[in-house]
């Protein structure tokens, strides 16, 4: 029975609710990571779960990503449904060997005999003055790796709904949670919606230009779309949601309607996910393009600590507005 009505829900709480639901529904599910237990998680996502489910199912780990991600893979191989939290995406690099060489490959190398039903949750992105070792956006790298499913919930609804299908997936799934989204509150249905982990979503329909983004950049892109609307430009906003495998079709169909595309990606431009999106548009929708594809990415520097410098290094709504307008109005984009 679907309850009518809605409630305000915070992204962080939505993720916690999703984990609690999974822990209640399936006793093979457990959470582990640095400070996820007694402390309640570095971003307080697991706050209260330790008290409710105890140290067996909410496990604090040593500061060794390689070890505890490997342990998670082993647990998944052994029939468990582990949720592993890595404190930030920068630290995930320590576990890259486990993720790439084991999690992503074992099913393939065993001819499908081994499933790795593992979920790794990773906070990502900048904007909180955590400096260059805690603020990068490396999800694009993981989206490079066959054998992984990479998710980027950008809305409270997706934060609430993506975990369950991720746990049900026999392959390893990475969920990237942008640190600026944790405090976002949105109106959601009382009864959590079922979401898929395969398709992109059109967050706003429009005719003039497709703004393609994901994760932490979605709010600023929606803000830009609203401002563009006041200038008479009808922008469509695509939330990729799933960074691997990419829902190419939604993107291409949108560009086929609008004939112009701007990709907004907090990652660095060179060799980025935005480069991949741009290339696919060029490969598959070339004859529908009425302007060159544009990208708005982070400045190619280690993310600065100083607030104004960090702000200047990250994609901004004003920049999205400027580039989209230039594209639609036929003015030089560089400026």
């Amino acid at each position: 029975m679907t309850a009518g009505g809605t409630r305000q829900l915070q992204y962080r709480v939505a993720m916690r609710e999703a984990m609690r639901e999974a822990l209640l529904a399936d006793e093979r599910v457990f959470l582990m990571g640095e400070d996820v237990g007694a402390y309640g998680g570095c971003f307080a996502v697991s706050l209260g779960l330790f008290e409710e489910f105890g140290p067996e199912r909410i496990r604090d780990t040593p500061l060794s990503e390689l070890a505890f991600v490997g342990a998670g893979i082993g647990a998944a191989l052994g029939g468990m449904r582990p949720i592993v939290e890595i404190m930030t995406v920068n630290f995930s690099l320590l576990a890259l060997d486990q993720i790439l060489n084991n999690a992503a490959t074992l099913s393939h190398m065993s001819g499908g005999q081994f499933a790795i039903p593992l979920v790794i949750r990773i906070p990502t992105g900048g904007g909180r003055q955590l400096a260059a070792q805690h603020s990068h956006s490396l999800e694009g790298w993981y989206a490079h790796i066959p054998g992984l499913r990479v998710l980027a919930p950008a809305t409270v609804e997706d934060a609430r709904g993506m975990l369950a299908p991720a746990l049900a997936d026999p392959n390893p799934v990475l969920i990237f949670e942008h640190v600026l989204l944790y405090n976002v509150e949105e109106e959601v249905p009382l009864e959590p919606a079922t979401v898929d982990i395969a398709s992109a979503a059109i967050r706003r329909g429009g005719r003039d230009v497709s703004l393609i983004t994901y994760g932490g950049s979605l709010p600023l892109v929606l803000e830009a779309a609203a401002e563009l609307a006041t200038a008479g430009i009808d922008a469509e906003v695509i939330d990729l949601r799933v960074l691997r495998p990419l829902d190419e079709r939604t993107v291409l169909e949108s560009v086929t309607r609008t004939h112009r595309a701007v990709v907004v990606d907090e990652g660095w431009r060179s060799g980025s996910l935005s480069a991949e999106i741009s290339a696919r548009i060029m490969e598959r929708a070339f004859f529908d393009l009425d302007a060159p594809v544009q990208r708005i990415c982070s400045v190619e520097v280690p993310v600065p600590y100083a607030q104004q410098l960090e702000e200047a290094a990250r994609p901004r709504a004003s920049e999205v507005v400027r580039v989209a307008r230039a594209l639609v109005e036929g003015r030089p984009v560089d400026g």
């Binding site: 004939h259 009425d290 302007a291 060159p292 230039a326 594209l327 036929g330 003015r331 030089p332 984009v333």
Partner: peptide, 10 residues
Amino acid sequence: GTGVEGAITQ
């Protein structure tokens, strides 16, 4: 052309 860099657009 009135498009980006003077390109002829649709």
